[in-house]
């Protein structure tokens, strides 16, 4: 028998089919569920975006940033700025995210020269600088902040549903784009860079270009998440949007779900969402619990929940890899 390469299996076809059904059901959900749940699910979609983007950078490319709140905050800020100029707030969200993606290009030119820990800390420093710069804008009034007031043009129910559908569409498109990217030859290059940049280069991979594209995609995705968060919360204070807590949440979701696993980031976001829903009211203890869980996972379950499941059962719902068939000679 000659060897061949397969990518889709019956299991992964079922996985993608199941995902499509879930997304379809979620699209119809606002007709059936109460406004409180619509708001909560919107938050979940935003968490999934954040986790997936951080996982793409850290889990697939080895770019561990603890300054992704930069793009979250800038996404929200750019949306307010553009809406303030008279643009429809929903259009402003998209334009704002695109603007942040464009800005991420020159940022990547110098930040990606930093390696390992320098890159991580450098991104945090940059996020703090970003926050200070935004506070200089008279419209933001320092820490007082501002709001996306033009959203008031939409009625409460319509607005809630539009934001819900917007978040669902953003999550779906970003996950699909990431899935397509990681399945392509670029995905192989991204992972090769993570594992050994020198060897990747000698095999024809161009690390700078590859990392830059991923960095810009992640910046765009996280900026869109920031814009959506703003739409839901309406008010904008630099301190809360540029808070490192956002990156801490991303790290938590990815570590617990399974770093470097496409399904892992999504699972992590769902778990984080559940924990938050049930325990957020306990205040400080909730944060201590989150931190302790992240430490336990990184010490004892470094592959995360999905990593452990996949290692034990070989299950892969979203097929990114390649399998050879007929390997026996």
């Amino acid at each position: 028998m000659t060897m061949a390469v397969e990518r889709w299996t019956a299991q992964s076809r079922a996985g993608v089919g199941g995902a499509a059904l879930v997304l379809g059901a979620l699209a119809l959900a606002p007709m059936l569920i109460g406004p409180g749940i619509v708001d909560r699910l919107t938050a979940l979609f935003i968490y999934v975006i954040l986790a997936a983007m951080w996982n793409a950078l850290a889990g697939y490319c080895g770019l561990v940033s603890i300054g992704q709140q930069l793009f979250f905050g800038l996404g929200a800020y750019a949306t307010i700025r553009i809406a303030f100029a008279g643009v429809d707030p929903f259009l402003a969200m998209i334009l704002g995210a695109v603007a942040v993606g464009v800005l991420a290009w020159p940022v990547s030119l110098f930040m990606l020269r930093l390696k390992g820990g320098e890159f991580s800390i450098g991104m945090w420093v940059l996020a703090s600088i970003g926050q200070l710069c935004v506070k200089l804008d008279p419209m933001i009034q320092g820490e007082t902040g501002s709001s996306l007031i033009s959203l008031n043009a939409y009625g409460a129910d319509l607005r809630r549903n539009l934001i819900y559908w917007g978040a669902l569409a953003a999550m779906t498109c970003l996950l699909a784009a990431l899935f397509a990217l990681l399945r392509s030859r670029e995905g192989l290059a991204i992972q090769a860079i993570r594992d050994n940049e020198e060897a990747a280069t000698s095999l024809g991979v161009r690390p700078e270009r590859t990392k830059r594209r991923l960095f810009v995609l992640a910046a765009f995705g996280i900026a869109l998440a920031g814009a959506l968060w703003l739409a839901q919360a309406v008010s904008f204070q630099p301190k809360s949007y540029f808070s490192v807590q956002w990156t801490a949440y991303m790290i938590f979701m990815v570590l617990v779900g399974g770093i470097g696993r496409f399904e892992g980031a999504i699972l992590g976001a769902v778990l984080f969402f559940a924990v938050e829903t049930f325990f957020a009211a306990t205040g400080v203890w909730y944060l201590i619990g989150l931190g302790a869980t992240a430490i336990v996972f990184s010490l004892y379950f470094p592959r995360g929940l999905w990593g452990a499941v996949a290692a034990r059962t070989g299950v892969q719902l979203l097929p990114l890899g390649y399998r050879a068939t007929n390997t026996e000679t």
Partner: peptide
């Protein structure tokens, strides 16, 4: 094309995927 004195495999990928990096790039 070179090989390295101390092998530098992509540890997070399978053998086939390691080889595909070369086939799809250089």
């Amino acid at each position: 094309m070179r090989t390295h004195q101390i092998p530098k495999p992509f540890l997070g990928l399978t053998v086939l995927e390691n080889v595909l990096v070369g086939a799809t790039h250089a």
